[in-house]
Structures are given as structure tokens and as C-alpha cells.
Simulated scan of single mutants.
Amino acid sequence: MKLNKVHHVAIICSDYKSSKHFYVDILGLKPLKETYRKERISYKLDLALGNEYVIELFSFPNPPKRLSYPEAAGLRHIAFQVHDITEAIEELELKGIKTEPLRIDELTGKKFTFFSDPDGLPIELYEV
């Protein structure tokens, strides 16, 4: 088997309206298709970064909380690359999103930071 690339990341949110606003209006991802699944009382929103499909945003009634701190075993976070991390941080802060202090990757020397989505999911920005 040869894997080609990551196809998408699935995110389950507790408040669909809030999370949709965050991923579309704050982060600027492009909605591709929105589906309401009546039998599951659930929305599914397919989101793209540029023209590339990257995230499936799901809503379910009363999903259990995700443990982020302390870090639990399993998938840790989603990371987006940016060309100017200082500019990206300033834009997030203007939109009311707080970021962690800027850090330097000790292995690559690149700058990065973290912030959270409405459910506390850690999101990384990594400067390339």
C-alpha cells in the first residue's frame, strides 16, 4: 500500500453555529457542501483550504468533552502553515482569538504558535 496524502481531518463540535463561524469566518476556510442528517440530528460541513478539501466539521447532540490539557493519548492537533506568523497572529487577535506565546521549533528554527477552536481543539500555526 502506498499512501498519497492526508485526505481530510474530521472534527466533531458541540455548537455547530459557533464552530462554523470560527472555521469559515475566522480562519477563512471555504464551505464546499453542507448537509443536515436528520436521522443523526447532525450537520456535516465539508471545508476547503484554497481548493483543497481539508476538514469535515460534524455536529452531534451532546458530544463528550475532548481532553486537551493535560495532553491525552491520540491525535493531538491540526496545524496550518503560514508565510508570516506575526501577521497571522495579529489577524487572529483582531478577531478576538488569543494565541499562545510565539515559540521556535528547536529542530527547524521555525516559528509556531497555538490557539484553540470553540471546543478547545488545539490548532497550530507554523511559519514556513
Rank of each mutant, 00 (worst) to 15 (best):
E90P: 02
P101V: 09
S68H: 06
I123K: 02
I89V: 15
E106Q: 13
I123W: 03
E93M: 13
I11T: 04
L94M: 13
F60K: 13
R37P: 00
E87V: 12
E90G: 14
E34W: 08
G28L: 02
K5E: 06
P118K: 07
E90S: 15
K95Y: 10
R103Q: 15
I55M: 03
I85Y: 12
K5C: 01
Y23T: 00
G109F: 04
E124S: 01
L125D: 08
I26T: 13
S18D: 08
L75K: 05
K98E: 13
V24Y: 05
S19L: 04
F114P: 01
L57T: 00
E127M: 01
Y53D: 07
N62M: 09
P70E: 01
I26R: 03
Y43D: 02
Q81Y: 13
L92T: 11
S116W: 01
D25W: 04
L3M: 11
F114G: 00
I85H: 12
F112D: 02
I26D: 00
S19V: 08
P122L: 09
R40G: 00
D119I: 08
Y36F: 15
D84K: 13
H21F: 14
V82K: 11
P118D: 05
R66M: 13
N51Q: 10
G96C: 09
H83I: 10
E52Y: 03
Q81A: 14
K65C: 01
D117I: 02
P70L: 01
L102D: 12
A10C: 09
E52C: 01
K20C: 11
T99W: 12
R37N: 13
L3T: 11
I41E: 14
P63E: 05
H77V: 09
P64R: 11
E124T: 06
F60G: 02
S19M: 06
L3K: 02
P61E: 14
T86S: 15
Y126Q: 00
L102K: 14
E87M: 14
F112P: 03
L3N: 06
L75T: 10
G120W: 07
Y53L: 09
I26E: 00
K33I: 07
G109H: 06
D105W: 09
Y36V: 02
L45K: 01
P118N: 07
E106G: 01
S42C: 05
F115P: 05
V128N: 06
G50T: 05
T35A: 05
N51P: 00
D25S: 12
F80C: 08
F115G: 03
E90A: 15
A48F: 00
Y53Q: 04
E127Q: 14
